[in-house]
Nucleic acid binder design. Structure first.
Lengths: 355, 355
DNA sequence: CTGAAAGCGCTAACAT
DNA sequence: ATGTTAGCGCTTTCAG
């Protein structure tokens, strides 16, 4: 940034121009203290004439908290994060909060750094979005950040991830990963599928873990034997879905359906099926998770579980500013199945192969 | 945010703990001034032990500029903006800058407000992303903001939009909207199309205006007569693409190809074609613009013009901190055609109808 | 190479 | 209802 000292107009200028003290100007600007209608008008006028804009940093310093919240996502363009970010940004705007966004790119270490960066900015709240790593050291370090943040008057809010542990000063808003997975696997089961491949996200990532757990519970409840060979853990990406299914097909896939752990993975699964000349849902049924726009762009349209991502973001933004011991500091929003065209009854029991 | 005063650790604490003055601590933290290796070590140690994190607001106040840049997009989830935002965020992180993101939702008034908000935060740079309105009053007001921002030591950077006017303190990084459109229409022409419908973005939005201009120039250069009935102005959305093409098909479409002014519009065009039982590209060729992921997810894969969105964002972030009179304050990044499967030679001259 | 001290612009007691 | 004033935590001359 250029180095000029910035000849900005200050509160004092406004005070001088309207013939009142800086305290009065501050009061009309904050609007949280009685001021005579007349003087208020004079001040407002002076503000407009001088084109005065408040120095948010000075205010944050004086108030020891900024009107800013921070949101850390894995990737800004991933629609899962994108919709949550949109909810956060919109609600924040309504609440008069600015929104600092940062991307961890899936790195736990980076995430920790980003929380510190946000602490440095004295963000009123720091929202951690999406699944978290099941890692002892990480959890300990984040817990320490949670305490520090709380000490400093900020909030750590977990959005779509499990709590850090007992008695920690965090609040959260999540959705039922396990339940959604249970429901969609149950749907597959109800249609007659018994051999279902699970193509999922990163090892020990909470999102994946819970989805897999829901899948497993559905299988158990329907008395379908668990088969480790059917679960494939890797990434939440189209690339992973594609290479995984391609490989399975090469080896001969003994399944009639695949549960893609999110819609992005489903995209890859569709591609692999297409490459192999396998028809969805005729030869292979596919379901996803998240219900992002691509689900309706795929052909056949993808059956998936819908998560109210934007609403999740809005709530997270609110949790940034609610007082510490609110009654429902931890809430859960519902998910629901969206049944489209990617599932049919299994055709016959046979091994699926490329070509 | 909870009201606690924030018992944060300050520079003074670190100074006390390491037995030096606050000035010295400040110097090692800023790293822009010679400090004895020994004392530097002591300070660094104290910082770690106390878990000290700098107060960014205090620093910003003292320096009269924050290590923050602002980015204003129309919509966080739109991939056009998303990829640019990703580039901005990534480059900003590399440069040690935090990134405030705000969404204008396409409102000029809101955009102006957001710039003022970012001014309040003393952002070192404010990046305005995407096409801008061709509106006199708006332009005047934004020009005024540009001057104010420059006065205050900040930068206004235009990313993917035309300059505000002569002699204004702005810098910009764009791509060739007109050229890309010229190229892709030329491609359609080369394949034999003569009747091409243009289904485009918002009236007077620069992006749309330039794309349409390029389209027109290609037509002229190939000696194809201009037909106003073939251009349809509206929104950059799938919904607009769909309703527009549906309506055209209902009335009977005398064209063999459609130029969707961006990929989102193309999505809608595909849907309408599908609804009407019209095959792409057999009955109708389609091209888009932007080359966002959906282009490869569509079937047939969409031919479109690729814009280096993320790179655009990275450059924009850099422009936020380059000194005022840099040699190339205004740059243009190239676009290129990506030819996939959505174009074929026109089948025959006939009117396309639904059903 | 290090310290002392005067701000940066605003807020929030405390007066009046 | 309004003014006074002491900070908020860091940077940056200016001395030493």
């Amino acid at each position: 940034m250029p180095s000029s000292r910035g000849s900005g107009i200050t509160l004092a200028d406004v005070a001088a121009a309207s013939g009142v003290s800086t305290a009065t100007v501050s009061r009309v600007l904050s609007g949280n203290y009685p001021v005579a209608t007349r003087t208020k008008a004079r001040v407002t006028e002076a503000v407009a004439e001088l084109g005065y804009v408040m120095n948010a940093n000075a205010r944050a310093l004086a108030r020891s908290r900024a009107a800013t919240i921070g949101i850390v996502v894995q990737d800004v363009v991933d629609p899962f994060f994108g919709y949550i970010a949109r909810g956060v940004e919109r609600r924040a705007a309504e609440l008069g909060l600015a929104c600092l966004i940062m991307a961890s790119q899936g790195s736990k270490e980076r995430e920790l750094e980003l929380v510190d960066l946000l602490r440095a900015h004295r963000a009123g709240g720091v929202i951690l979005v999406g699944g978290s790593a099941d890692d002892r050291g990480y959890r300990t370090k984040m817990a320490q950040r949670a305490r520090a943040l709380a000490d400093e008057g900020g909030n750590l809010v977990l959005c779509g991830r499990p709590p850090l542990g007992e008695g920690l000063p965090t609040r959260s808003v999540s959705y039922d990963n396990e339940g959604g997975a249970f429901a969609i696997t149950s749907h597959l089961l109800a249609r007659g599928h018994r051999r279902i491949a699970y193509v999922g996200g990163p090892h020990r990532l909470s999102t994946h873990t819970f989805r897999l757990a829901g899948h497993r519970r559905a299988l158990e409840q329907h008395g379908v034997a668990w088969d480790d060979d059917l679960v494939h853990v890797g990434q939440f990406s189209a690339a992973f879905g594609r290479t995984t299914l391609t490989e399975l097909l090469r080896r001969g896939l003994d399944a009639t359906a695949v549960f893609a752990a999110n819609d992005a993975v489903a995209v890859g699964v569709y591609e692999a099926a297409e490459d192999a000349g396998i028809s969805v849902p005729h030869d292979l049924s596919v379901v996803g998770y998240d219900d992002v726009p691509v689900a309706t762009q795929l052909r056949p349209r993808l059956s998936t579980v819908s998560v109210p991502l934007e609403e999740l973001g809005r709530r997270a933004a609110e949790l940034c500013i609610t007082e510490s011991d609110a009654p429902d500091a931890d809430s859960i929003v519902g998910t629901h199945l969206v049944l489209r065209d990617s599932v049919s009854a299994p055709r016959e029991a046979r091994i699926l192969r490329a070509g």
